[in-house]
Write a protein that binds this DNA or RNA. Structure first.
Lengths: 141, 141
DNA sequence: TTGCGTGCAAAGGTTTTGCATGGCA
DNA sequence: TGCCATGCAAAACCTTTGCACGCAA
């Protein structure tokens, strides 16, 4: 613990990094693969190496600026720009003790997208509640 | 419509098919990859070809006897035996028209597992309801 | 006997790694 | 000037396909 200095050392701003972020954010809502990103920059005659695309996208995911999906059909991973870092937050309500927990998780964001894409239903993440039994109450039985 | 004859012709029972099903069912609840299945049969000196393992697992998924997951971390797909064909069925309730839809989907089963494994919360799939807006009501706006 | 199932080898596709070069701070 | 970022080439993986042979029905 203890490396939270004001500015992160060792993080550079590069043309490629900015370009990839800009492109991803311009695709808001769309899922794009690493190959598609690379292809885009090829198309506009500003090619970016495959390796860089992958590394950049992973970094964006790590920073919470993008989400990574792996859809069953296509074997390639998809990336999606995400605006608000604090998105997709569901509630878990314990049916035993009544306590409500917050659930912040990338997978759940994926679920909302999936239900929209595949089942044509726009989920209201803030109203939706998962019912079940929390860890504490399970232990007491 | 119209090919529901009493017995499916052209489906054979084989040593490998039975063995893979038996192994998967013996792992109840665990997620195993195709490689792990193959490795298991190697370990007991009854090797089964990679190709066969993949084809067999896909067939089980198609028949609803197994579920296929693709977890982010490992790039390999995971398979899980499933006992009751009619599992994990959630409800979608439209906040506009009030209609309730049924949602039967492998991804949602994965979600329940994920919430249990990672967030220590045992979801009650039958009580949990997704709120949102259905396709019809969205079209009318 | 028929034709589905199997398994080897090889191909296809995605992602990662090694290493020299380039560019931001 | 130091050091991270880039990008090529090649490797590492997972999965699929082609094809000849084996085996259930």
């Amino acid at each position: 613990m203890g490396d939270a200095m004001g500015k992160r050392p060792g993080v550079y701003t590069t043309r490629q990094g900015e370009a990839i972020l800009a492109f991803l954010s311009s695709c808001q809502g769309a899922h794009v693969t690493a190959a598609q990103v690379a292809e885009h920059f090829n198309d506009i005659s500003e090619p970016i190496g495959r390796t860089t695309v992958y590394r950049r996208l992973e970094k964006l995911v790590a920073e919470g600026m993008a989400r990574k999906y792996i859809i069953d059909e296509s074997k390639a991973a998809c990336y999606q720009y995400v605006d608000e870092p604090q998105q997709g937050h569901y509630h878990l309500k314990c049916e035993v003790c009544g306590e409500v927990f917050h659930l912040c998780c990338n997978l759940l964001d994926e679920v909302a997208d999936h239900i929209y894409d595949e089942h044509d239903f726009k989920v209201n993440e803030f109203k939706t509640v998962f019912y079940g039994v929390c860890a504490d109450c399970r232990e007491q039985n």
